[in-house]
Design a protein around this nucleic acid. Structure first.
Ligand SMILES: [Mn+2]
Ligand SMILES: [Mn+2]
Ligand SMILES: [Zn+2]
Ligand SMILES: [Zn+2]
Lengths: 158, 158
DNA sequence: ATGTTAATGGTAATCATTATCAATAAGGAA
DNA sequence: TTCCTTATTGATAATGATTACCATTAACAT
């Protein structure tokens, strides 16, 4: 249901990658395909399992290595939500701004992944990006607004 | 130099904690003191080492357990920046809004911890909090704006 | 088609975090 | 203050996600 998921791998990545001197390999194709078709944030093991179905020769080590490469190139983002394993998601999903929100419940440790920004909010974030570039020399590729607090379910139980 | 650091432990926490049925113990006092005097985000081991200086009987397990307790009560926030170990910081440092920014470099994996919000940005975030409460039943206690991209140093090296 | 070397994948090693459990001490009651 | 209950502690062992290693394979430039 979330428009940030299930859109397939980023278009034109093979050319872009080759341009950087990287090789376009079968495992990399598969992993990007899995990430592109994900309906949620996936752990390394989940990515491995889904890739294995498409290409049983793949190894878990390669999954980790490829994820690392994709992070360094700004293609995906690594999410560590305190559950002991990291999760990964494509970074470039929202046109123009590439920003969404995570609502972390500090009590039950679940988190809600939403993409719910108003025009005002988008405008302000765009400005903030420009300011961060000027002031800190930092070029923003994507962002996540992490909110910590108490979720609906945990409130009921009180 | 960052106004979010070095302010000492949150005032009045012993009473608040006892009210919740928790006991106010020596290790908890020490750990909160260490967190309150931190000049940066500390790892569990760093917290343990600093606590050890003040109270050599303390154990690493207790540090982890106490950090967990403080997270659940919204006193601190756990930051996992992909370096293999988590870091912790007091949540309640910025009056009114409790929000600051992290600039993650996807290349060198360093991150800059800043607290640099304009009036406009603060106003927008306040509104967002209200909206998240109405729409998702989520009560925000604090937030971090995570920006992913390329840092100043990494640009130079290209 | 061949050569160079980036990339792979099985395996072992690492190390931050958790689980266990007997011993201790906070704090309420008397 | 003294006693009791039990939350909390800390030493140790176990866990498990991630990384290191290294011989083998396969992109892809020539
Ligand atoms: Mn997300
Ligand atoms: Mn911070
Ligand atoms: Zn919850
Ligand atoms: Zn950098």
């Amino acid at each position: 249901m979330n428009h940030r998921f299930g859109k397939g791998p980023p278009k034109g990545w093979p050319g872009h990658f080759r341009g950087q001197g990287y090789r376009v390999t079968v495992p990399r194709r598969i992993i990007l395909q899995v990430l592109g078709n994900a309906e949620k944030h996936l752990s390394a093991e989940e990515i491995y399992l889904r890739s294995y179905k498409l290409y049983p020769a793949i190894g878990l080590t390669t999954v980790y290595r490829t994820l690392d490469l994709l992070i360094k190139n700004g293609v995906i983002i690594k999410i560590e939500s305190g559950e002991g394993r990291a999760r990964y998601e494509l970074a470039g999903r929202v046109e123009g701004i590439n920003c969404h929100q995570h609502l972390f419940c500090v009590n039950c440790r679940n988190f809600l992944d939403i993409s719910d920004l108003t025009e005002d909010e988008i405008a302000v974030i765009k400005k903030m990006k420009e300011r961060l570039l000027k002031k800190y020399g930092f070029t923003v590729k994507s962002c996540i607004l992490q909110f910590y607090g108490e979720c609906k379910n945990c409130k009921k139980k009180e």
